[in-house]
Amino acid sequence: MGIDRRKFIKASGLAALGLAGLAPVKLFGTEDSTQAVSDSVSSRKEIGKPLEGKRWAMVIDINKCLREENCTACVTACHTAHNIPHFDNSKDEIKWIWKETFHNAFPEQEHEHLKDHLLEKQLPLLCNHCDNPPCVKVCPTEATWKRERDGIVMMDWHRCIGCRYCMAACPYGSRSFNWRDPRPFIDRINPDFPTRTRGVVEKCTLCEERLRIGQLPACVEACKAHAMVFGDLEDPDSEVRALLRENFTIRRKPSLGTHPEIYYIV
């Protein structure tokens, strides 16, 4: 009986999800409107049906990732899509997704006799879009906040005052500050995404600008090894849930109670 009821709730939840997914399509999915927009779009693809999820999450398979020698496809894709400047010094550096050794990524879980590839190679790190984000708590202007509907930790670069309290509060080093005007340091500007002004903090937004037009995050799309899987954690049939069910996964600094939504298959 109990199981039946759970099944029923699941099923109705799914149905609700499906409806929610359809709703925005109805709102602006008509033929001529998409046409009108794409006429004026320079390089961006057509506006597709937005990806809808209640709790976005990502599962990164370290083994698959590390099999690709010195691959930085995810980093390049993200940094090109989001107009990330390139500075020669690490002091002014801006990064949304970057690679670190297991030792730096999981300081609490490392030891000196790990598998060779974990000791030597680097794995991708990005904003964890925590369920309990310390950066959001400390922001004095709500320039960074957690989206209730899908769990993305967002940034409003119009509002940020550049106090950098969020950078002090983030236990994962996921945030960067624009110490200087980034524009002269961007190799090729993508007109579909803004650059930033000096004096504001920025970080990964889980490609919310892509999700809303029906595209996967740039890093996930670019990953040749299919080591990064993106999906809705609340959907029991999603690929991320299947991967979490079938593999042993870890998260960064779980003891802090931030509940990261980026999972790593070791």
């Binding site: 004026s40 961006r44 506006i47 906040w145 409003d156």
Partner: peptide, 23 residues
């Protein structure tokens, strides 16, 4: 940015993308 919407409705009742650079 804050509400995550994409489209607005213009005077003629047609949907338009809320975008400075594109619209």
């Amino acid at each position: 940015v804050r509400k995550g919407e994409v489209m607005d409705i213009d005077m003629a009742g047609k949907p338009v993308e809320m975008s400075l650079t594109r619209t």
